[in-house]
Amino acid sequence: MNNETIKILIADDEARMRALVRDYLRVKGYQVLEAENGAEALSVFEREPDIALVLLDVMMPELDGFETLKELRRISEVPVLMLTARSEERDELRGFSLGADEYIAKPFSPKVLMARVEAVLKRTAANPEGIVLETAGIRLDERAHEVSVDGKNIDLSFKEFELLRYFLENKGIALSREKILNHVWNYDYFGDARTIDTHVKKLRAKMGEKGAYIRTIWGMGYKFEPEEA
């Protein structure tokens, strides 16, 4: 699919922000539609149901981003990238629980946003129904953004979710910290690769006994080795 055939809806009450994002999207060849509040975004989507991606600001009048997403999910599974000036983990979890596909905090680099847009479009094109990964009682549902261990749901932050998905996709493979950083944090992180250790520690704790399946490879990184039933 050529970019010229892809429609993206921007819903943000700040005209300046819409213009900035619109210009970058158009440079990439995408068709761009705009809405200045949640109610207008829903109206635009009803008129243009072939929209491929929605960029949805959280803080908007009439209907905020969360309420707009809730209503949108009643009629469509279109990919949604949430834009927010707040970066609290509880807001991320709320967005994902309502069906958001990605989350990006303001202020952001336009290049980072474009990378996120392209990643979401590529992922949904390859997996239009979303993917479900399961092994040894661990189940990860990408579309619902849910993880369960032995049937019990666990709440993960966005990076913990992405980290677990990367482990599940590379079962039995030793992964260096640098490789994990490149695939999970990629374009939006600059800093010490040891941040991975902190996220792995939290992920293991949330997974209970099965957190032990994430094994440390001393001096290198980690390997996900589940004990299959």
Rank of each mutant, 00 (worst) to 15 (best):
G208M: 02
M82C: 05
F66K: 00
E134Q: 14
R26E: 15
D197T: 13
L9G: 04
D64R: 06
A105C: 11
A85V: 15
N127H: 15
P226E: 13
P107T: 13
E118A: 10
I6T: 15
E36V: 12
A126P: 00
K7S: 15
N182I: 00
R139K: 15
E178N: 06
L113V: 14
P79E: 02
A144W: 04
N153E: 14
E92C: 11
V120C: 09
L164I: 13
V44Y: 02
I138S: 03
G219E: 12
F190P: 00
G95D: 04
M59E: 06
P61Y: 06
F108T: 08
R47K: 14
T216L: 13
N170M: 04
E46L: 10
H145R: 12
K171Y: 00
K70T: 12
G151N: 10
P128W: 11
R215T: 12
A100E: 03
V58E: 01
E134T: 13
G151Y: 03
D12Q: 06
R123L: 09
S148R: 12
Y24R: 10
S148L: 09
E129C: 04
R86Y: 00
K202T: 11
R22T: 14
F45N: 00
V120E: 02
L98C: 08
L25V: 07
K223L: 04
R177Y: 12
S97L: 09
A41D: 02
L164Q: 03
L83Q: 06
M60A: 05
V32F: 14
S76T: 12
L98F: 14
K210G: 07
G219N: 11
R74H: 14
G151R: 07
M114F: 04
R94A: 07
L163G: 07
Y24S: 12
L72C: 07
S157P: 03
N2K: 14
A41L: 05
I131D: 10
K171A: 08
E209H: 06
L93V: 15
M82R: 05
G211M: 05
Y222V: 06
V21E: 06
P110D: 11
A39Y: 01
L181H: 10
G29E: 08
K122V: 00
T195W: 04
A174D: 11
V132F: 02
R94M: 09
E92F: 08
D91F: 15
A212E: 14
G172C: 07
L53Y: 08
K223C: 15
I180T: 05
P110V: 14
W218M: 12
S109W: 03
R94F: 08
K152C: 01
N37W: 12
K106A: 11
Y187M: 03
F108E: 07
P110K: 07
D57G: 09
F167G: 03
E40S: 02
L55P: 09
F108M: 10
M1D: 10
E71G: 00
D150R: 09
